[in-house]
Deep mutational scan, measured.
Amino acid sequence: SLEEAIRRAEEALRKGQTFEYAGIRVTTQEALEKFRKWAEKQK
Rank of each mutant, 00 (worst) to 15 (best):
T28M: 03
R14S: 14
T18H: 13
A5E: 07
L32R: 00
A5M: 14
T27W: 07
E11H: 06
Y21E: 04
K43D: 10
E3V: 10
Q42F: 11
K34V: 13
E40V: 06
T28I: 04
E33S: 07
E4R: 06
E10W: 05
L13V: 13
Y21V: 05
W38L: 04
R7Y: 11
V26R: 00
A12G: 03
R25F: 14
E3D: 15
Y21G: 02
A22F: 09
K34Q: 14
R25Q: 13
R7P: 03
A9V: 03
W38G: 01
G23S: 05
L32A: 01
A31F: 05
F35G: 00
A9W: 03
K41D: 15
T28H: 06
L32P: 00
E10L: 05
T28E: 04
E10Y: 07
T27S: 14
L32Q: 01
S1W: 15
E33G: 05
T27R: 06
A39W: 08
E20D: 07
F19K: 00
E3R: 09
A12H: 06
L2P: 05
L13S: 01
Y21T: 02
Q17G: 11
I6N: 01
K37D: 14
A39H: 04
W38V: 02
V26P: 01
E33F: 05
E11D: 11
A12V: 04
A9M: 06
E4P: 02
L2W: 15
K43I: 15
E33Q: 09
L32K: 00
F19Y: 10
F19Q: 01
L13G: 00
T18I: 15
K34F: 14
Q42A: 08
L13Y: 06
T28N: 14
K43R: 08
R25S: 13
E40C: 04
S1E: 14
K41H: 13
I6D: 01
Q17D: 12
F35C: 02
T28Y: 02
R7L: 13
A9K: 00
F35A: 01
A22G: 12
R36D: 01
T28D: 15
A9Y: 03
A31H: 13
V26M: 06
Q17N: 10
T27N: 13
K34Y: 15
T18F: 14
T28K: 02
F35E: 00
R14I: 11
R7N: 09
R8S: 11
G16S: 04
E11V: 07
E3T: 10
I6R: 01
K37C: 05
G23N: 07
W38I: 02
E20T: 09
R25D: 06
K41Q: 15
I24V: 08
R14D: 10
R8A: 14
I24G: 03
K41W: 12
R25L: 15
E30Y: 07
R14G: 11
R8F: 10
A31V: 06
F35D: 00
S1K: 12
L32D: 00
S1N: 13
G16D: 05
K43M: 15
K15G: 11
L2V: 08
A22M: 15
R14A: 15
E40A: 08
A31M: 11
K15E: 12
Q17F: 11
K43F: 14
L32G: 00
Q42N: 10
F19E: 02
K43W: 14
A22D: 10
A39I: 14
K37W: 10
G16H: 06
K37S: 11
K37R: 11
I6P: 01
T18K: 09
K15S: 12
K41M: 15
T18P: 14
R25G: 05
Q17M: 12
